[in-house]
C-alpha cells in the first residue's frame, strides 16, 4: 500500500520512515531470512539453523523460541512472522519421528508463501566441528551447482533457484577479487543434495589467474527432498514481473560486430534527383521556353 493510501496515518516521522522502508520499492532491498524452530526441534536442527544464520548474517533473523506450527498444513503463522520481521525467506526446522531432522526452506511473495521445499538432513557437520579458519561475516559466496538433476527435474530447478535466492546475498555492482573467499557447492547425486561450504585459498600459479585450493569450512549438510509446495505458474510469473520503468529500452538501429565496432543504421528520405547539382555547362543552361523558337527563327535570316 502506497504512503497516501494508508488509512491510519503514522503519528511520528520515525514510524513513517519505518513504514516507508517496508513498502514495495522499484529496486528492492536485499531479501531477509528468518530462521524458525518448530515445537520439537532437536540439537541437529537447532545447530543447523544457527550455522545457516552465521552464513546469512546481517540479512537474517534467528527466532529463539519454539513456534508450534506446521508450514505445510497452515501457513498463516509463517506469514504473520514474515510480516512482523519483514522477511521474505524462511527456514523452518523441526524434528519428529515421521520426518526426522526436517528443514523447510521457502520464500514469500507479498507476504504469502510462494515456494516451499521440505528437506531432510541426513548428515550434518557443524561450523564449529571443523577446526579451521572461517571467512569473515557477510562475505558474498560463490554458488556452484553440480549435477544434471538441477536442470532436468522441475523440483530441483526450483530448489536451485531457492538456494540462490537464499544465499546470494546483496546484489553488488563490483566485487573485490581478494574477497572471493567462500564457496557454497551443491551437488545432486544419488537422489541427495550435498551442500558443502569451503573457504577459498588463492595460490600462485605462475600466471595472472591464481590456482584455487579449497578448505572445508562447514556447515556441510546432506539433504533429501521430502514434500514440496511450489507456486503455480501464473503466480510465479507474476512474482517475476519487473516494473516497466526498470526495463531498459532497446535502442533501435544500433548494432555491434564481433570486433566491437558500433554500426548505426540511418533512415533517409528519398533523394530528389531532379535537384541534383551537376557540372555547369553553358549549353545545358535552361532558357525560358518563349525565347527558344523566336531566336531560332531569327538566326537563319542573320546568316
Amino acid at each position: 500500500m502506497a504512503a497516501l493510501e494508508r488509512v491510519l496515518k503514522p503519528k511520528t516521522k520515525r514510524s513513517k520512515r519505518f513504514l516507508e522502508k517496508r513498502e514495495p520499492k522499484l529496486v528492492e532491498n536485499v531479501k531477509n531470512a528468518m530462521l524458525l524452530k518448530g515445537g520439537n526441534a532437536n540439537c541437529t536442527v537447532t545447530q543447523a539453523l544457527k550455522d545457516i544464520y552465521a552464513l546469512k548474517k546481517p540479512y537474517a533473523v534467528l527466532y529463539k523460541k519454539k513456534n508450534i506450527t506446521r508450514p505445510f498444513e497452515d501457513q498463516t503463522s509463517l506469514e504473520f512472522f514474515a510480516k512482523k520481521s519483514d522477511c521474505s525467506l524462511f527456514i523452518f526446522g523441526s524434528h519428529n519421528k515421521k520426518r526426522p531432522n526436517n528443514l523447510v526452506l521457502g520464500r514469500m511473495f507479498d507476504y504469502h508463501v510462494l515456494d516451499m521445499i521440505e528437506l531432510g538432513v541426513e548428515n550434518f557437520v557443524s561450523l564449529n566441528d571443523i577446526k579451521n579458519s572461517k571467512c569473515p561475516e557477510g562475505t558474498k559466496p560463490m554458488l556452484i551447482f553440480a549435477g544434471d538433476a538441477f536442470e532436468s527435474s522441475e523440483d530441483y530447478k526450483r530448489l536451485k533457484s531457492l538456494f540462490i535466492d537464499f544465499f546470494r546475498g546483496p546484489a553488488v555492482p563490483c566485487v573485490r577479487l581478494a574477497g572471493l573467499e567462500h564457496v557454497l557447492h551443491f551437488t545432486a547425486l544419488n537422489g541427495k543434495i550435498f551442500m558443502r561450504s569451503y573457504k577459498v585459498l588463492l595460490k600462485k600459479s605462475g600466471c595472472r589467474t591464481p590456482r584455487i585450493e579449497l578448505e572445508e569450512m562447514g556447515p556441510s549438510l546432506d539433504f533429501t527432498v521430502r514434500r514440496t509446495h511450489l507456486a503455480s505458474d501464473d503466480l510465479y510469473k507474476l512474482s517475476l514481473k519487473q516494473p516497466k520503468t526498470l526495463k531498459q529500452k532497446k535502442k533501435k538501429n544500433i548494432s555491434q560486430d564481433t570486433f566491437g565496432t558500433t554500426y548505426g543504421r540511418i533512415h533517409m528520405q528519398k533523394q530528389d534527383l531532379g535537384k541534383l547539382q551537376t557540372r555547369k555547362v553553358k549549353g545545358l543552361k535552361k532558357r525560358p521556353a518563349m525565347d527558344g523558337p523566336e531566336s531560332s527563327s531569327k538566326k537563319p535570316r542573320h546568316v
Binding site: A2, E23, P24, K25, L26, E28, N29, K31, S88, R107, M108, F109, D110, Y111, L114, S161, I164, D165, A171, V172, P173, C174, V175, R176, L177, A178, Y236, L238, S239, L240, K241, Q242, P243
Partner: peptide, 20 residues
Amino acid sequence: TVVVRLPEANLRLPREKPPP
C-alpha cells in the same frame, strides 16, 4: 584494491513484493 565490475545478473529471481 583490485575490483572487477560484475556484469548484469542473468538469472531472474522472484521479487519480494509486487512493484509499486
